[in-house]
Design a binder for these strands. Structure first.
Lengths: 356, 356
DNA sequence: TTATATTGCGCAATCGATTTCATTAAATTT
DNA sequence: AAATTTAATGAAATCGATTGCGCAATATAA
């Protein structure tokens, strides 16, 4: 019933050699003869041998595992970054342990510890929104375990980071709205001022300044940025009778909520109010009108993060010089923010088709 | 620089006892005195001790790791199931290794092997669409490692499974469309006939039979069921001039694509064509009109899967009797399939609000 | 042809926690 | 009080692969 694995020793015995030799053959150690190597490989295949990673990890200190910590995998952005990372890990024979912190600092701490104890060779992380204390990551560094942060980063850790230029993304979004003739632009932002939201707010403000538009702090609405929060924020604005002609949200989810409320109130988009979100979640292209948004270059970010990570991994800890890499986001302009309504969709085929 | 971990031995030396005793104290073994136990615990805390999971796993054969294999985490359904599972693992002190097969059978095989070699205590999996051969899972079973499949399962493995009643979900969806007066109902299905799509097709057919509606095989369109596929399927139907008054899709993504094409063609939904999807992806509630769909009870499925898994884990392999658990799905009726158009949204507040 | 390098492989320690067996001390029974 | 159990700890083996060291055999250099 309980089939047990064949071990190095089994191979060694079968060939009348020692486990050391078998190990060396399997890891193509230089000091091994072509002949024995072949015999070992053949026998290993015959016996259906698969190395016990745990034993290997214990002895060598290398597990070929990379721990990834993200707030949630249920965001297109994060799962895309992960896919980008996985493309690399796979090539290099590494495997990924994926963990979600659900933005809970306690859980994040536990996860990071668990990963270290599980012997990962390195950690790639995006910080939770509520993380304010970084000892758990500091420890990772002190252990000499390579660490790279992406997107949700912090300056309180001297560590390599990959992010997009949130400032620029926000600036361009707001600039675009201004170019569409908007003058009173609402900004939906997170009440937690982690790096990304701080930067997006700054981009918003600077765009206003550069275009000589008066900043009105009543137009900046803080929330948790989920869909429901977007709804509430919008309802609030409307109830207060605050005037505006555009909304730039630091999240696609809250702009979605805001749009729902606007549509329900009979306010036309983009004619009356123009909208731009942030994140390029797939659903933004499904809505009517489709929502303009800022793409975060998730796949590129994943690739870059992985590249930087593996560079670190190769170096001895002392040579690991933290570097910041900043990617350019891309403004995706869709129906929710265009002033000249695209009326005709060009040639539209007419089908012979009768509806009941 | 490289801070190293404190080990059992460190604690033992500090207290002038043996590692055996320390180990027993930490694992609250019955045969240990209250006094030493306390001293050990205190010293462990003082030295900031954290057990090396790898060593522990090697010796004890228990890693406290659960491997999860899913096609992708980038589906609300899967990430919700995972959340459900994680709620349990966390409570019980287990951790999760998440892996994505991306529906690639080769990758799936590799992943399962890697998980076993990484020493997971069990595996929870949802099969890739293209998986036709199950040796990798068979091996898991033969090793006495508990295995539970969810949603995308197979009868070719004698293993515990948790799924929803796809047949019922489809039946109810189609019945609902029929009740709305539809007679020519298109069914978008996957060309790969894995369990879930087979069952949904069967539900579709049986509903037609029960309501004495002629089955027309031209109304069943096979594809890969992504958004683009849904578009193409719909374009095809229209080009062929096939008459229909409703679409029931086995995937939310392809119904989304189909809806886009319909709207672009100026065909009104739900007046001319009514739509029902499957999966209750969040975006289905964001669209205009919102899309009716079948909810798969993902969180419940995650909870149940985890419960069943941990029951298995406790039993010795020979007592593990495979059980099938089938959850009832829920039809979520939204705007895309309602015949009486809900015109007024009840009381709508009018705000004092002037738009430019 | 002797001296030196190099190659190939075995020996045994090692990674750190767990666990079986043995041993001593304490508690309970007769 | 002697005999028997039980409780608490120690000693040492163990999980399976890796690796430093050493030795012999072969190859290369002098």
């Amino acid at each position: 019933m309980n089939k047990k694995k064949t071990t190095l020793l089994d191979i060694a015995r079968a060939l009348n050699i020692t486990p050391s030799t078998v190990s060396r053959a399997l890891n193509n150690h230089p000091r091994i003869s072509e002949k024995t190597s072949k015999r070992v490989l053949k026998m290993a295949a015959d016996l259906n041998f698969e190395p016990n990673k745990i034993a290997s990890a214990l002895r060598s200190g290398k597990s070929k595992l990379v721990g990834i910590v993200v707030p949630t995998v249920n965001r297109n952005f994060f799962s895309s970054v992960i896919r980008g990372i996985e493309a690399h890990t796979e090539k290099l024979g590494y495997h990924v342990i994926l963990s979600q912190s659900y933005d809970d600092p306690v859980k994040e701490k536990q996860i990071v510890k668990a990963l270290v104890n599980a012997g990962v060779d390195g950690v790639i992380a995006s910080l939770g929104k509520n993380t304010t204390e970084f000892n758990h990551f500091q420890e990772v560094l002190e252990r000499g375990i390579p660490l790279v942060l992406f997107d949700r980063v912090t300056d309180k850790l001297d560590v390599s980071q990959v992010m997009i230029d949130d400032y620029l993304g926000a600036y361009q979004a707001v600039e675009h709205l201004i170019n569409q003739g908007c003058l009173r632009i609402v900004h939906l932002t997170n009440f937690r001022k982690i790096n990304i939201y701080k930067e997006r707010l700054r981009g918003y403000q600077d765009a206003l300044i550069d275009y000589k538009i008066q900043f009105d702090k009543r137009l900046v609405v803080e929330s948790n940025m989920q869909l429901e929060d977007g709804r509430k924020s919008m309802e609030n604005l409307l109830e207060k009778g605050i005037n505006f002609d555009a909304v730039f949200s630091a999240s696609d989810y809250s702009i979605m909520g805001a749009m729902q409320v606007l549509i329900e109130m009979g306010i036309n988009i983009p004619e009356n109010v123009k909208l731009v979100g942030f994140g390029n979640e797939p659903f933004t292209s499904f809505t009517a009108p489709s929502i303009s948004t800022v793409d975060q270059k998730s796949i590129a970010m994943g690739n870059l993060t992985a590249e930087i990570f593996f560079e670190l991994l190769e170096k001895p800890p002392k040579d690991r010089i933290p570097q910041k890499t900043i990617l350019k986001p891309e403004l995706i302009i869709r129906g929710s923010s265009l002033s000249e309504k695209t009326s005709g969709k060009g040639l539209m085929k007419r089908y012979l088709f009768r509806f009941p």
